[in-house]
């Protein structure tokens, strides 16, 4: 059963990636602006011949569909191409930028999802009281404040309250584990806030739903403690929508990371994508989006498998 589902999902993955690759390929070329013109700059001595020569050298003089075909067949043989600007293999560029993003996303996810469960449960049990109302207002704020703005706000606050703290940029974990975590704290918080708010509200309403069910009354009638009722019986049933949302939120995190990395000067995939778009660095952009798409689809695949673990009805 699991195997069949997995096979089907992998087939979907291939289809999604193929479609996505074509969309990205077409979109970046439909955007006005020309890679060669940008490379040669606005204030330099550039002749049409030089532009044509460079265009031919990069293979950009071919019809678009031909370019796509060449690119696709290279990708299928494992060759992602070379960055137009630096000439380095795209795979190496991505490998050099992937870890900061993975780390940032994972820390933000753990922070967001981890805090959302207790917070949501508390809000549900406090329903109608002032603390619940206050937390609901806070979560609305969390939902509506953009991550990058919150990030800038935190940087400015820190620079006033503790001007000597150096918390910007990125150092690899292998070089300086403490420095690495210290520098990830603020960006991860900025990134986690919206999903924390979103998930906490979700857990709250799912819990309220669950707490109104007959089996809760039964559990209480059995004389179970309130804690056991809430955390063992209600929460277990409220987790299914939560897990689905976590999967979707991971995709959101990858998108949010783009701006947050920009603000905190973290050399991750987001910076790579943003740079590639403004440079019209086609091979780099296409490959990076492909990697991001693949991870998004794979995460959702993992979430589907998680359902089975959580819900016995799906396992059957």
């Amino acid at each position: 059963m699991i195997l069949r589902v997995a096979g089907q999902r992998l087939g979907d993955l291939a289809l999604v990636m193929l479609g996505m690759s074509f969309l990205v390929f077409a979109m970046i070329r439909l955007v006005p602006g020309d890679a060669v013109a940008i490379m040669l700059g606005a204030n330099t001595e550039v002749t049409p011949e030089r532009m044509a020569a460079l265009r031919a050298e990069l293979g950009l003089d071919q019809p678009m569909l031909v370019q796509y075909g060449v690119w696709l067949s290279n990708v299928l043989t494992g060759d992602l191409g070379r960055s137009l600007w630096t000439g380095r293999p795209v795979a190496a560029e991505i490998a050099g930028h992937v870890w900061p993003t993975v780390q940032l996303t994972v820390v933000a996810l753990v922070l967001g999802a981890g805090l959302a469960v207790p917070l949501g449960c508390l809000m549900a049990t406090w329903r109608g009281r002032w603390a619940d109302g206050l937390l609901r207002i806070v979560t609305v704020l969390g939902l509506t404040i953009p991550s990058f703005w919150f990030g800038i706000l935190m940087i400015l606050t820190l620079s006033i309250l503790a001007p000597e703290v150096q918390a910007l940029g990125y150092v690899p974990f292998s070089e300086d584990p403490l420095g690495n975590l210290a520098r990830l704290a603020l960006p991860a918080l900025a990134l986690a806030l919206p999903i924390l708010a979103n998930l906490a509200r979700l857990v709250r309403s799912a819990m309220l739903d669950a707490l109104a069910q007959d089996y809760i009354r039964t559990a209480r009638a059995k004389g179970l403690s309130e804690r056991a009722v809430v955390y063992r019986h209600a929460l277990a049933n409220a987790l299914i929508p939560f897990v689905t949302s976590v999967g979707i939120m991971t995709g959101y995190l990858l998108g949010g990371a783009i701006v947050v990395e920009q603000v905190f000067a973290i050399p991750g995939l987001g910076r790579l994508v943003l740079g590639a778009i403004s440079e019209r660095n086609y091979p780099l952009l296409q490959a990076t989006i492909l990697v991001i798409t693949a991870s998004f689809v794979l995460i959702n695949f993992a979430v589907d498998l998680l359902y089975a673990a959580i819900d016995p009805r799906i396992r059957a």
Binding site: I152, I155, L156, L158, S159, P163, E164, V165, Q166, A167, L168, G169, V263, F264, A265
Partner: peptide, 11 residues
């Protein structure tokens, strides 16, 4: 703004 904060902190 990040550059400004970094100069302020001495980073």
């Amino acid at each position: 703004q990040t550059r400004q904060a970094g100069l302020g902190s001495g980073q």
